[in-house]
Write a protein that binds this DNA or RNA. Structure first.
Lengths: 339, 339
DNA sequence: CTGTTAGCGCTTTCAT
DNA sequence: ATGAAAGCGCTAACAG
């Protein structure tokens, strides 16, 4: 059996060829090879040809490390986020990955486990080897981030940071739509299921407070520990005790948890109370009842944020991009029970 | 407002200090600093102290790039997978990330979009800057992978590759359990909803064929294009046409799709037919009916695979680790309809 | 225990 | 259009 049918015929040795190898082969200087490969136009067209030919005959690839040393540019960007397991982040990562790739860059993903200290540590370490960082749902405050950004550009995704470029969803718009929807259905008192201690949570709560004051809606906060399915489940008793007729969940995972707990307890949603999620992750339409949720433009946030980051013209100026949130009405919201 | 309360007092300049800066400050040689920081025991304890002190006074961090050049070790590993968006990969990535971190290494995640050519390209590029690769659900054949592995170690995760270390779930065991379960319920004909053209798919199908021959079960394959929710939905008509009373889905996403389509068509699962998923992603228990599924030890696969990869003693020897699969029985399976 | 020297692979003046 | 040489930050012999 012959299994040698590879396109690029790399040498059998375990060592990758360098520009020296190809320079030697052609009796040229390494600098010429370097230029031929990366500075179009500055070298005789026919020598470029030859160099190219030998390059892929040898299966040459530039060594990004070696390249990064003199230039200070690594061609890689990092995204650091609190929890890589949260489906919310995936579309964001994917958007970012796609844009990074279109710039010929690589993406590094790193998790900070929701710890500010670890987040800081991660950023400082990563800064040595990337051209910029995408910080998602940071647990660090604006001042710290600004200071870190002095070394390598940082753009904030999914949370705002005063002095940094940021890409965020239009929380106010989205929350308004959700509250209006609930109000139209007849609800007058809603609970917000938030994760205590997160900056983004505070922002939402503030807006909700504003909105409630404006409209004729009463709103209470029910704090949960973790933005997970289990976190949501654990809140059921308090939801029932609070007497609200609708709940706004921190995210879809939490909403899933509420649904699961309600179902387990024999409580029908949306008959007993309505549930609105946040994010519209893929499973939101698969539950029963299917989840009414605020669709956050995750993919676009990732795309936009990476575009800002990859462009030297924008990655330092604090431009705040705000993307619209859409209310997706499904089955988990209905008029409140008569009382 | 004073906002200077950072722990490590880094210099106001945008340039990170090097070992030269700290060597100069202490009138030592750079190599002493290098050793003090990374070769414990070889340097006078008190000088190490001083060096440490100056180091974090200056906010020093090693530059991994500079370090990688002479050593050939970058301290980063890559995981390349077909689709970063597939929840199946979440836990695997997370497991890998955790182990990588415990080795002080960074993880790069890269997507190949299911294209063999792009996968190859991605691997070759990444090889220059990582110490090893975790290739998940590869679309490349064993020969190609073996050849690529000549440069940097590759371990195969979630699919086997003859000459490479691999970590895979016990497909045969799992499928046996699923078929037994179905058989006990009274099913005698099942369809396998596979993604045509994937190596791992072929493996499953072969096992299924084996198993069907052994037991008294007839099995047909229904091919779908993509292992996604939509892919699953699109198969409903063919499932109904085939006359089978149970279906084994390629993964939970596909199963979700079948459930969704059935629900939309007013067909009740499991009354009309049973559905068994694969993987047990977090949303499997949230659907209605909750999904009976084969729980693949994703997290452990990630953990194990990265452990093999990070250990120079194991990352070249083709050890095949097989992890057990567990059948999780929920609501989507029941006796077949009487006929 | 510590200093000197050379180089990792590539880019980049400065020459020619 | 091409070459020579220096250097990016760090490590690794090889001396002392």
């Amino acid at each position: 059996m012959h299994d040698d049918e590879t396109s690029t015929g790399e040498s059998p040795t375990g060592r990758r060829p360098t520009i020296y190898d190809i320079a030697e082969r052609l009796e040229l200087s390494p600098s010429t090879v370097s230029r031929a490969l990366h500075k179009p136009g500055r070298i005789n067209a026919t020598t470029v040809e030859k160099i190219r030919a030998v390059a892929d005959e040898l299966g040459y690839r530039v060594n990004p490390m070696a390249r990064a040393l003199p230039t200070g540019m690594s061609g890689t960007f990092a995204v650091v986020l609190p929890d890589i397991t949260n489906p919310v982040h995936f579309e964001l990562i994917r958007g970012a990955e796609q844009v990074a790739r279109s710039h010929g860059a690589t993406l590094v993903v790193s998790e900070s486990e929701g710890s500010p200290a670890l987040e800081r540590e991660t950023i400082e370490t990563l800064q040595q080897s990337v051209d910029g960082l995408l910080v998602v749902a940071s647990r660090l405050d604006a001042a710290q981030l600004r200071k870190l950004a002095a070394i390598k550009p940082i753009v904030a995704a999914n949370h705002s940071a005063r002095d940094l470029p940021s890409v965020t969803p239009d929380l106010r718009g989205g929350l308004t739509a959700a509250l209006d929807h609930l109000h139209e259905l007849g609800h007058r008192s809603v609970a917000y299921l938030g994760v205590t201690g997160l900056a983004i949570n505070r922002a939402r709560w503030d807006i909700l407070l504003d909105l409630a004051t404006e409209g004729s809606m009463s709103v209470v906060e029910i704090g949960i520990e973790e933005p997970t399915v289990d976190g949501g489940s654990s809140a059921l008793r308090r939801i029932r005790a609070s007497g609200v007729t609708a709940v706004l969940a921190y995210n879809d995972l939490v909403a899933h948890g509420v649904l699961r707990a309600a179902r387990a307890a024999g409580i029908d949603v949306p008959t007993a109370f309505s549930v609105v999620g946040f994010d519209d992750i893929f499973s939101a339409e698969l539950t029963v009842p299917a989840l009414t949720t605020l669709r956050s433009p995750l993919r676009d946030i990732g795309t936009k944020a990476m575009a800002l980051l990859a462009d030297p013209g924008t990655n330092r100026s604090p431009s705040h991009v705000v993307l619209p949130i859409e209310l997706v009405t499904r089955e988990s919201t209905a008029p409140p029970p008569p009382r």
